[in-house]
Design a protein around this nucleic acid. Structure first.
Length: 849
DNA sequence: AGCTATGGCCGGGCAC
DNA sequence: GTGCCCGGCCAT
């Protein structure tokens, strides 16, 4: 820690907001080290520019201490910094003790003097503190109640919120819809709705992509050294700009490539090429990249420095992990789309790998151009390739009516983080930022992790899985076999509902009131407060109600325009991301509000709801085929039975049980989390079955897909025998293909991702073995790489090093068998019989030997 | 400096 | 051989 040089924080430049800036959206905040002032970036949709607005405050960084100012003044280290700190006595509310508390606010009058602004420096100096982990600009936002992504206006040099009020008809409609709600929840929901309904501006933006010459084939250029020249840069922007600039240093009379709908230009020296790049970057309020934090912007900055550009001339500032622009926002889409919560809950797992090609292909259907080695491309090929990358990068934000941009703005409003932070941080930081903001609004002390742990203790249940901290969800044993007419019901937002209905929050669990101690959470030895509404319960509960009662229905409302439905769909998706993460973070040690009893109680209420719903189903005479966490699979229930069950859960548990899907028929094996369901239209829903997994060789997974297609065609039990014949033919043909070695090596390659660096493996699994062979042969290998290998008689070989004759066919037949078996078992079919092998039982082996 | 959780299946590797 | 753990991938 200690002093941080001013050079590290480069002054922003660009347009300073006039004193009468019309309504503009607050997008980003920071600290200008040169002026020692806080600044906000405000996006003004009419001029389509970002303006800087300066605030005279410099009190951005502070901590709160239990010690009195007198005690703190006795701290020798503190007195080393007399000019930078002020001490102020303030009252806060200690939610854990449920009483007010006087504390000392230690303010760093120059945040840069204190550990780079993170506040860690203050903690180091004065010891035990609260609230010192907050990034300095967040203090600024929290203390003023500013909401990123919302409109503000500059009037006579002051920042004034533009109060967006819900239109009266919407207000009335919501008041009516939420009439049954507790008023505390209703008020909260109205405030959230105000943020969520406020129009999202269309943001002018440009995507940029660079190509670099590589002298060594297969080696990625090093952005920190930036030794090799930048050969092409492309832009694709929301205002229609599509431009490629190419480096043609030799000055040879090469023909300028012609690309329809795009400008192409040659630059004879790299320095002027860079000048042009910086000019374009400076023109846009938002710049998009795919991996610009680690590559494109880093390379541009360092390359420019190598070419003797001064820092002031380069509009890029590099942090240790991120790259920022001095005149706008840099959004690295790689980071945003790689965020697990975004991938799974916002984009339905439509991509699984961390490449532009995979993400773009999965989300928008647009792929990278297939080309050979970059160095060997003609100018035209290089230009088209590079431009396509910029095009599809921009496409990630423009598809579906700017869905991704809207998602970012809405989530930034919910989490109270700027878009730059939101897109770079994980879901636990989003929820933390939201919780911290709420604490400040209420004048609550933000507790340290130890404070919560000390007051609330650990867990009291025992996990099913060794090494886990507490018991999680229930998974019912499935009833194996083929079942026609299966209805799947699931609890809408089970865990958020549990948090809401049971008033779960770190301060309400195990509260200090004697009379609450009988109010037990089922299945635990924890009690919960009966006097006060918990903060987590209120926030998560309101968001959940808003999603279930308002935004999910609106997203499907046929009376709305497609644009309106799309918008509401974005809102409900954003809420879903927060809700789904809200339970898990409290069980994560890394989360600063870690509260084991809270996570444990949430899961316990979930088990309670699930168990009681299954009991009630049985009581109603419905056969429960399977259940997992929050869903029950029912064998041909009548409409009346379903109605009675859902009415029961609503009445008894206060949780909505909805019809999730209906299968014409479903196949269960004896394994949990493994089944196949066929919808009325013949489409197939596959869960957990090996044949669907990413690492399975295409030859096997394609065969599996064919199997499911055959099953998808079955409409009645009477058609099953015919399908079985088709399956017989399929199995024989795949078996023959293997036996005849009639395949390309890529078809039978397992594709497994390296979860860590090679050196970090303690064991030697197959994909690691193959990776090591590749490495020894000279291929660079890193975490996240997907290793393709085939199984050979002596172990494994990477595809690149194997030959067809090396392949151990029997191993592949075994894989084929185990994969098919999961479904064939339930169909009373036997793989060995089908391929004419003797049955591989231990008894058979014994007698056959 | 990466971090929401637990439950479950599968194959391979290793110790006994 | 059996049992256990690891690593990857998935369900919720």
């Amino acid at each position: 820690m200690g002093f941080r040089s001013e050079e590290e924080v480069s002054a922003p430049r660009g347009r300073v907001a006039p004193d009468d800036l019309p309504p503009s959206y607050f997008l980003s905040a920071g600290y200008d080290g040169k002026q020692e002032k806080a600044f906000l970036r405000l996006y003004e949709p009419e001029s389509r520019q970002v303006y800087l607005w300066y605030d005279n405050t410099s009190h951005l960084s502070y901590a709160v201490s239990k010690e009195t100012p007198e005690q703190l003044r006795g701290n020798r280290r503190l007195m080393d910094y007399p000019g930078f700190l002020t001490l102020e006595r303030v009252e806060k509310f200690d939610a854990i003790a449920d009483e007010p508390v006087m504390v000392t606010k230690v303010v760093a009058t120059n945040p840069l003097a204190i550990g780079g602004g993170a506040g860690g420096g203050i903690r180091n100096i004065i010891g035990e503190t609260w609230e010192s982990r907050i990034r300095y600009y967040q203090n600024y936002i929290y203390d003023r109640g500013l909401i990123p992504g919302m409109p503000y206006r500059v009037e006579a040099g002051n920042l004034v919120p533009v109060e967006y009020e819900l239109p009266e008809d919407i207000q009335a409609e919501m008041q009516e819809a939420f009439a049954k709600e507790d008023p505390e929840f209703r008020d909260n929901m109205m405030e959230w709705a105000r943020l969520l309904q406020c129009p999202v501006p269309v943001m002018r933006r440009v995507a940029v992509d660079i190509e670099v010459y590589t002298s060594v084939a297969n080696r990625l250029p090093n952005p920190d050294e930036a030794i090799e020249p930048i050969t092409a840069v492309s832009f694709a922007a929301s205002d229609g700009l599509r431009r490629v600039i190419l480096l043609n240093e030799t000055g040879e009379a090469a023909a300028l490539p012609v690309i329809e709908g795009a400008e192409v230009a040659f630059y004879e020296d790299e320095r002027s090429l860079l000048a042009e790049v910086f000019r374009v970057l400076d023109e846009y309020p938002v710049v998009l990249t795919f991996n610009g934090d680690n590559f494109d912007l880093r390379y541009l900055k360092n390359r420019a420095q190598n070419l003797a550009y001064s820092n002031d001339e380069i509009p890029i500032t590099l942090g240790r992990r991120f790259a920022y622009l001095r005149n706008g926002l840099h959004i690295d889409l790689y980071r945003f789309f790689m965020n697990n919560a975004i991938r799974v809950y916002a984009f339905g797992n439509r991509y699984r790998e961390n490449t532009l090609d995979a993400v773009s292909g999965g989300v928008t259907g647009r792929k990278k151009l297939e080309v050979g080695a970059i160095n060997d491309l003609t100018f035209e090929e290089l230009a088209r390739y590079c431009l396509n990358d910029a095009d599809i990068t921009y496409g990630l934000t423009s598809f579906n009516d700017d869905l991704a941009m809207k998602l970012m703005v809405i989530m930034s409003r919910i989490s109270k983080q700027t878009m730059e932070d939101l897109t770079r941080m994980g879901v636990s930081r989003w929820i933390l930022a939201l919780m911290e903001w709420e604490h400040r609004q209420r004048g609550w002390l933000i507790p340290n992790a130890q404070d919560i742990l000390l007051a609330k203790g650990g867990t009291t249940t025992t996990a099913m899985i060794k090494g886990k901290k507490y018991k999680g969800a229930i998974v019912q044993d499935p009833k194996p076999g083929v079942h026609f007419g299966v209805t799947v019901l699931d609890f809408a937002s089970l865990y958020p509902s549990a948090i809401r209905n049971w008033n779960l929050s770190y301060e309400t669990l195990l509260c200090s009131h004697e009379d609450c101690k009988t109010n037990m959470v089922p299945g635990t030895s924890h009690w919960v407060c009966t006097h006060k509404r918990g903060m987590t319960s209120l926030i998560i509960g309101s968001l959940k109600d808003l999603r279930v009662l308002r935004y999910k229905p609106l997203a499907k409302d046929p009376s709305l325009t497609p644009e309106e439905r799309t918008y509401y769909n974005v809102v409900q998706a954003a809420l879903k991301v927060f809700l789904n993460a809200s339970y898990g973070v409290f069980g994560a040690e890394s989360f600063p509000l870690y509260c084991p009893p809270l996570a444990e109680s949430t899961a316990a209420v979930g088990r309670y709801a699930m168990t009681r719903a299954i009991e009630e189903s049985t009581r109603l005479g419905i056969d429960v085929l399977y259940g997992d966490t929050d869903s029950v699979f029912l064998a041909h229930p009548t409409q009346e039975q379903v109605d009675r069950l859902t009415a029961w859960t609503d009445r008894e548990l206060g949780i909505d049980l909805d019809i999730d899907k209906e299968y014409r028929y479903a196949i269960f094996s004896k394994r949990k989390k493994n089944y196949l369901g066929v919808f009325a239209d013949g489409s197939v829903d596959i869960k957990g079955l090996t044949g669907k997994k990413r690492h399975i060789p295409p030859l096997l997974s394609n065969a599996f897909m064919e199997l499911t297609t055959i099953l998808g065609g079955v409409e009645t039990p009477g058609e099953m025998p015919e399908a079985k014949k088709e399956i017989q033919v399929l199995v024989e043909s795949v078996y023959a293909k293997l036996k005849d070695r009639d395949f390309d090596l890529n078809e039978i390659a397992f594709r497994v991702m390296l979860g860590r660096k090679l050196s970090a493996y303690e064991t030697n699994p197959q994909h690691v073995k193959a990776a090591k062979m590749l490495r020894d042969q000279g291929t660079p290998i890193d975490m996240g790489d997907i290793i393709r290998y085939v199984i050979t008689k002596n172990g494994v070989k990477p595809v690149q090093m194997a030959a067809n004759r090396d392949v151990d066919i029997n191993k592949y037949v075994d894989h084929l068998e185990s994969m098919f078996e999961q479904l064939l078992d339930a169909l009373d079919m036997d793989f060995d019989t089908m391929v004419g092998r003797p049955k591989q039982t231990s008894l058979g082996k014994f007698f056959g030997a």
